[in-house]
Design a protein around this nucleic acid. Structure first.
Length: 574
DNA sequence: GCCGTTTTCGGCCCGACTGTTTTCAGTCG
């Protein structure tokens, strides 16, 4: 069983207990165990059998029982009981920023609110604002939160959607008469949030029998033939998948059609028309005759275009650039020599310096930068000046014992409200490099926030601007800020701008990555991992970099160790 | 609920901000 499903179950249990008013410590224990399970290396089945899972910190008797029940029956009686007691809608309300357990209970108990619709009514008719310690602003925030939730509820994060698409692809390939099933659409383009899934399947059996068989794929609740060649499948999970039935003759254009964004497809259609082709849902036609085209490579070749990587098919300038044969050679993950932005057990991470060193060595990196939180980040266990000295001694020690990878002394300093980076200049200069990030005061005006960050960029100790816009996908908008001004300044002063690879951040947005490149900004791909099991987050950041047209030479951590250090520190000397 | 014992019960992170209030509860990171 997928660790994510187990972790989600534990998180839901924690949320229900919180809503019930259980001890905060009990709640946190379940949240911790969810994290611990997700970070467990090895399969849960083996871990349970060998007893290794029981030795993981944060995993106790209750967690083990839930895991073992989930593995054997696929569900949890603890969770089922809780779901019976508490309306589901209340859990959904927890996602509204500004509403916590106490307020939700107050709303539920006093106004009988059980779901988002009830809540919206209460916010609109004034009854919400009349509750003690509620007011007009709270009601307005709630309405804003509801509309945000509704807008985002049809989307999922990329990594979740891709996991689902992979599983679904396998199920489709198991259908008799299906030779292969390829993931297309937004997942293939590596969009950061995904609505419907798209597949193209190649048939080696009768179309009608395959269509009939699709209806019996596990988990399908609705089955809707859309045209003679496309079918919409709806799953009990809420996912919808558009499936195009293809064959050797039209596979290339079909895959391209199902992959490109609407804008890209329009551009490509127009381009094809200029070249004397008609490109429709039924394939490619010239002079009234179907053009056989078994692969996408052949499709682009026939049109006289360079192969356009799926990530670029967004309808910006990719078609004209491909016609000139000038598409970039996009970044590949194995071009990264350095692993940046990770947290250890010194602050809010759970892996040790040594574990990080071993993991990065095994992954083939030349260097890694440990970047725990700074002292102002009290919520995340930020390091005091004394802690910094202790950690630096430990890093020296690990470097003397482990070969094949070099551990660099980095830090993620908080950008304070006035724009100065945390710690004094002496402490900051003790680090090999400094990431500066905003972690509070999101409510500033655009002018204030822009000024705050511009001041940070002026500080010569700062090497990288971390998660530059602060967005949390499907949960929180970027803080208001003049992105172009910040990128312009970063280019001028030589501060690299991060693509944060945390699946919920993927910040900088790919559209702004492209803008950053145009302005001459160096990009840094940061993992922002809190556990070695999240080391491969980097792959998600690389996807965003590719989407933003990034080549190896644009990336700070594709530099050698010496080049990286030189770039990170060059302003300190002047 | 988990942990760590000075083993079987006490401790578990907290400061800043927001929106409500005239002193602070609730939320967030």
């Amino acid at each position: 069983m997928d660790k994510k499903i187990v972790a989600t179950t534990l998180e839901r249990i924690a949320a229900f207990l919180e809503l019930k008013g259980e001890s905060g410590f009990r709640v946190r224990a379940f949240q911790n165990s969810a994290q611990a399970i997700q970070g467990f290396s090895g399969t849960l089945e083996e871990g349970l059998a060998s007893g290794k899972l029981a030795t993981v910190p944060g995993v106790g008797k209750a967690t083990l029982e839930i895991v073992s029940e989930l593995l054997s029956t696929g569900s949890s009686t603890v969770l089922a009981e809780l779901e019976k007691e508490t309306p589901r809608g209340l859990l959904e309300m927890m996602k509204i920023s500004g509403l916590g357990v106490a307020k939700i209970r107050m709303i539920h108990e006093n106004l009988g609110v059980e779901n988002l619709d009830d809540l919206e009514r209460a916010a609109n008719d004034g009854s919400l604002a009349k509750l003690p310690r509620f007011g007009a602003k709270t009601a307005a925030n709630v309405l804003k939160g509801i509309s945000y939730l509704r807008r985002s509820s049809d989307f999922r994060l990329f990594h979740h959607a891709r996991a689902e698409a992979n599983a679904l692809g396998k199920a489709l390939e198991a259908v008799p008469g299906v030779a292969s099933a390829l993931i297309a659409g937004a997942v293939r383009r590596r969009c950061e949030i995904i609505g419907d899934l798209e597949f193209v399947i190649k048939l080696n059996g009768q179309r009608d029998t395959v269509i009939a068989a699709l209806g019996s794929v596990e988990g399908i609740i609705e089955f809707q033939p859309k045209s003679s060649r496309t079918v919409i499948l709806k799953f009990s999970s809420g996912t919808a998948a558009n499936v195009t039935l293809s064959n050797d003759e039209t596979f290339g254009p079909d895959l391209a059609q199902a992959t490109g964004s609407a804008n890209h497809n329009t551009m490509l259609e127009e381009f094809a028309r200029d070249k004397g082709f008609l490109w429709t849902e039924d394939g490619l036609v010239r002079d009234g005759e179907a053009v056989h085209c078994a692969t996408e490579t052949a499709f682009f070749e026939i049109l006289g275009l360079q192969f356009i990587p799926p990530e670029l098919r967004e309808g910006t300038t990719e078609v004209e650039v491909a016609e000139r044969g000038e598409l970039p050679k996009l970044l590949e993950q194995d071009s990264l020599k350095g692993f940046l932005h990770c947290h250890t057990n010194y602050s809010d991470g759970s892996s040790t310096v040594e574990e990080w060193a071993e993991t990065c060595r095994d992954l083939g990196y030349d260097y890694l930068g440990i970047t725990d939180h700074s002292q102002a980040a009290t919520y995340a266990g930020g390091l005091s000046e004394e802690d910094v000295a202790v950690q630096h001694a430990e890093i020296d020690n690990v470097n003397s014992r482990i070969s094949g990878v070099r551990v660099l002394k980095g830090v993620e300093v908080d950008i304070l409200a006035d724009g100065s980076p945390d710690y004094g200049p002496e402490i900051r200069s003790a680090f090999d490099f400094v990431i500066a990030s905003v972690h509070n005061r999101y409510g500033m005006s655009s002018d204030e926030m822009t000024g705050r960050i511009l001041r940070t960029l002026d500080d010569p100790s700062v090497s990288i601007l971390g998660h530059p816009t602060g967005r949390l996908l499907l949960a929180r908008d970027p803080y208001p800020m003049d992105v172009a001004a910040v990128l312009q300044k970063a280019a001028e002063v030589g501060v690299a701008v991060e693509i944060n690879s945390d699946p919920q951040r993927l910040d900088l947005d790919w559209k702004n990555v492209k803008l950053a490149l145009d302005l001459g900004v160096t990009i840094s791909i940061g993992a922002d991992a809190h556990n070695t099991s999240a080391a491969n987050n980097v792959e998600l950041g690389v996807g965003i970099a590719r989407k933003g047209w990034v080549e190896t030479g644009n990336v700070l951590n594709s530099f050698s160790t010496e080049e990286f250090l030189e770039h990170a520190q060059r302003r300190r000397k002047s």
